[in-house]
Design a protein around this nucleic acid. Sequence first.
DNA 1: GGGATATGTGAATGTTTATTCGCTTTCAAG
DNA 2: CTTGAAAGCGAATAAACATTCACATATCCC
Lengths: 201, 201
Amino acid sequence: MKKTPTQERSRQTVEALIEATARTVAEKGWANTTTNHIAERAGVSVGSLYQYFENREQLFAALIEREISLVTQKLDEQIPFMLKADAPTAIRAALEVAFAYFESNEKLFTELANNWQATGRTDFVDAFEAYMLDAMRMFMAQNYAAYEPLDLNTLSFIMSNATMFVLSRFVSRKPKGVSKEALIAHITELYALYFKSRERK
Amino acid sequence: MKKTPTQERSRQTVEALIEATARTVAEKGWANTTTNHIAERAGVSVGSLYQYFENREQLFAALIEREISLVTQKLDEQIPFMLKADAPTAIRAALEVAFAYFESNEKLFTELANNWQATGRTDFVDAFEAYMLDAMRMFMAQNYAAYEPLDLNTLSFIMSNATMFVLSRFVSRKPKGVSKEALIAHITELYALYFKSRERK
DNA sequence: GGGATATGTGAATGTTTATTCGCTTTCAAG
DNA sequence: CTTGAAAGCGAATAAACATTCACATATCCC
């Protein structure tokens, strides 16, 4: 962020700008979202926008960050429960959180999923991957006696990316012949079978 | 395509344009690829470009189509082998084809992976999904006695999307702590375990 | 050959928007 | 109350490119 807002007034401006971006993106798509329109919608001038954001793209990045932080917050809430549960239950719980989030604003989420890559920034997903790796480490630490050693780096890389993109594609495309329930069930089983195969006998 | 080239000369022009697009995209990225530059590089005028493509984006779409057709061709070559093999062997063979393709031109592939979504077109991946579903159906038909009925729609949706995006992300990001070999081994096992669990006893 | 059709040309156009900057208003501290 | 910093303003700018079009050349077919 170009300039850090110190007063309350400006903090609200920044928030209003991000929220206006979210709404506009959900409505018209990121490609058709202009800085002037965002500013207008946020009830401030374009000049103010450029006080806090270097450029148009940084605004989009800020929006993504806000959304990711929302999801991880939701996931955090489930962690105590997941740590006590067995693998299939924990996996399903995480999937359901992700689904609920995607469904809370499909249009916005689809736009984010379709455009974040074009920003050239990878830190968004990197952060999420790191979060998942961490979560899996915690789970394993809790259940260390039950499983053989796993290559968690590879496993979490696969699982976080696979899940993220499969869900994102499901929500944005609504494929025929695939129901939400079947999707959750299959992904859960796919992962759970792997863990089961690594249980100490 | 705006106008279909009938003479040999124009067919070469179209090819030159797509090839010029591929090279430029690999070098500078799609965002920095201008129509004028493509035309120049292809050795034709911008006007000619617009004889055969409605707009800049259609050129990008044509490039993606070309690349997808290249991969499916490579996969086709493996199909006879895969049909005779067991599930893990078949899965691994497909993964290796995909990897070989991605590695043949990482920069180009990464750009395609990062920008196809912004075109708003879904048919590219839809076609690939359909291809995978078909391949799985063939495999199952060949081995129908060995497995319980599977929800192939859901399964192929998950597997094709998961694989595509995990590999694409691996190639474009080179994550620490994850090797190509480990990745292939884990994905193979993940899927193979699922099939195994559905074997008739 | 010659008419018709296909292909090729590239300077000029026009539109679109991100970004700037000189100026005003608001705030907070002393 | 004063004053310097923070926040806000929005008309004007400026650059970038995609796309067009009036004209030229090549190819095909009779």
